[in-house]
Each structure stands twice: as structure tokens, then as C-alpha cells.
């Protein structure tokens, strides 16, 4: 399989009043085409910086970011993004919000086709009948679903999700996890998911990357082999418990609360 996203030895520091603040140092990450990688790590370890690098919104101080065999040097229309804040435009209907990227990215779709595609995506995430509503009329979970449709409308190669479910309540979040699986089945994408939720990471991703504390490097990689479609019951198996334990221990190491060697449960 071709590596769609490849991050090699990336180093980055922010300039602050008290001198440079290194956030990433020695970050390695690769995602095969169609893969879905979750990135977990302590708060403030530079996970969001990682998404901005992949999206081409900023350049690393050192190291390389490759997408589709091309080095990323700036923003590219083949990327879709969704954040914790759904950032829907309040003055547009849900349908018009979803169509927004097509006003920027060159598209072969006619206006009618684009609208059909938007309606198809909205139906896929369970928002049929809400096309003409304003974002303020929707609940938090529904807005996040709409934001997901907007990220997918232009058929991006890469979907970057920066804690998209972080602000939702537990039940809504689980609903959206199931939705993600349904979406991925109908609209395959290569994804990078930033999250704080370890259950979310092993439920959605086929590989979980643990970043160390700041400055972040790749500390641990856990493969989550996919055996058939996942259900929420899969989270309550001994296997899942083992994975969660490994990840929790790795996070503790990253936070500096557990020694790096030995002591794994």
C-alpha cells in the first residue's frame, strides 16, 4: 500500500516572549492510503500543530511532510478539516455550509450535482430534512455532523479531524463514532484523528500513535487490526481492555508520571 501521509523527523517551535517553545521534535508518522490513524498524547503536546502541518497551514522548522508523494509546502485543496468547534457559518443554511468548500476548490460538479452530493452526505450522517435549517437551530452533535459533511464534500484525499467529538456528551459521541464508520464505508478517506479519548482512538482508528510530552516525538504505535465491522460491544472485550491499558500506561509515561521502562500492566 502506498503511504499517503508521511511525516519525517519533523521539528517545530513557536516563538514566544520567553524564547522559542519547542512543541514537536522528532515526529514520525505514516498513514497508508485508506488508513485511519489516531494521535493521542498529553494536553498541549503539539497535536494540533501536527494537523496544521499536514494541512499545509504552517511549515515545520525542520523535517518533511509528504502527501501523496509530494512535499507539502502550502495549503492544498485535497485536504478536508473538522475541528472541535464545528465553525459553521451562522448566516448560511446547513446545505450552503456544506457546499462552502466547493466555492473555493475547483470542481467538475455542476451546481445541481454538488447540491445532490451535499444532500447525499447529509443523509448519510443522519441530517436528512435539516438542509434548510440554520446552524443555530441544530444541537451540538448535529452541527458536528454537518461540519463533517463540509469536510468531505470536495472528496478530499485526507481528512483531518482535530478532536471533533471533544465537546460532545458521551452518548452523542458514541453515536458519532458509529456514523464515522458508516461514512468511511460509503466515502472512503485517509484520516488523521486527534483525540484525548483512548476508547475513541481504538474504536475508530486502525493505528494509534502516542506522542510524548512537549516537545512531542512519536513515543509508541499501537496497531488495532480490523476484523469485520466494529460495534460498540467491541469496546467491552478483554482485547479492548488490554489495548486501553497499554495506551493509558503510555500516556502516563508521556506525562512523566510513570517511568519509561518496565511497569507495564
Amino acid at each position: 500500500m502506498q503511504e499517503l501521509i508521511k511525516i519525517k523527523g519533523v521539528r517545530h517551535a513557536y516563538q514566544t516572549d520567553s524564547g522559542p517553545l519547542p512543541v514537536l521534535d522528532g515526529l514520525e508518522l505514516s498513514v497508508p492510503e485508506g488508513g485511519f490513524v489516531a494521535v493521542v498524547g498529553p494536553s498541549g503536546c503539539g497535536k494540533s500543530t501536527l494537523t496544521r502541518l499536514v494541512a499545509g497551514l504552517m511549515k515545520p522548522d525542520a523535517g518533511e511532510v509528504w502527501l501523496h508523494g509530494e512535499q507539502v509546502r502550502g495549503p492544498r485543496p485535497t485536504v478536508g478539516m473538522a475541528f472541535q468547534n464545528p465553525v459553521l457559518l451562522e448566516w448560511r443554511s446547513i446545505l450552503k455550509n456544506v457546499l462552502l468548500p466547493l466555492e473555493i476548490v475547483p470542481t467538475k460538479l455542476s451546481r445541481k450535482q454538488a447540491e445532490e452530493r451535499a444532500r447525499f452526505l447529509l443523509a448519510l450522517v443522519g441530517l436528512e430534512g435539516f438542509e434548510d435549517k440554520r446552524p443555530s437551530e441544530l444541537s451540538g452533535g448535529m452541527r458536528q455532523r454537518a461540519s463533517l459533511c463540509r469536510a468531505l464534500i470536495h472528496q478530499p484525499d485526507v481528512l483531518i479531524l482535530d478532536e471533533p467529538f471533544g465537546a460532545l456528551d458521551a452518548f452523542t459521541r458514541e453515536d458519532l463514532w458509529m456514523t464515522m464508520h458508516q461514512v468511511k464505508e460509503r466515502e472512503p478517506f485517509t484520516g488523521v484523528l486527534i483525540t484525548h479519548d483512548l476508547r475513541e482512538s481504538i474504536f475508530l482508528a486502525d493505528q494509534v500513535v502516542v506522542l510524548s510530552g512537549r516537545p512531542a516525538r512519536t513515543q509508541y504505535v499501537l496497531d488495532v487490526p480490523k476484523a469485520g465491522p466494529r460495534t460498540l460491544d467491541d469496546l467491552y472485550t478483554p482485547q479492548a481492555a488490554d489495548r486501553l491499558n497499554i495506551l493509558r500506561h503510555q500516556i502516563q509515561i508521556a506525562q512523566g508520571r510513570a517511568p519509561a521502562e518496565g511497569g507495564a500492566s
Binding site: A55, L57, P75, P77, F83, W91, L100, P101, I104
Partner: peptide, 26 residues
């Protein structure tokens, strides 16, 4: 909010487009 800028900037939109489509109405 920077996210508002980012959703368009990540697609390669110009500053003028961001102003016209997001900053001005907002």
C-alpha cells in the same frame, strides 16, 4: 476565531475570499 480562517485557508483560499465569505458577514 482562527478556525474560521483555517477552514478556507486550508483549501487555498485567498485573503480576499476569506474576508468576503467569512470575515465580512461575521
Amino acid at each position: 476565531e482562527p478556525e474560521y480562517r483555517d477552514i478556507l485557508r486550508a483549501l487555498g483560499a485567498s485573503q480576499a475570499t476569506i474576508f468576503w465569505k467569512i470575515a465580512l458577514p461575521k
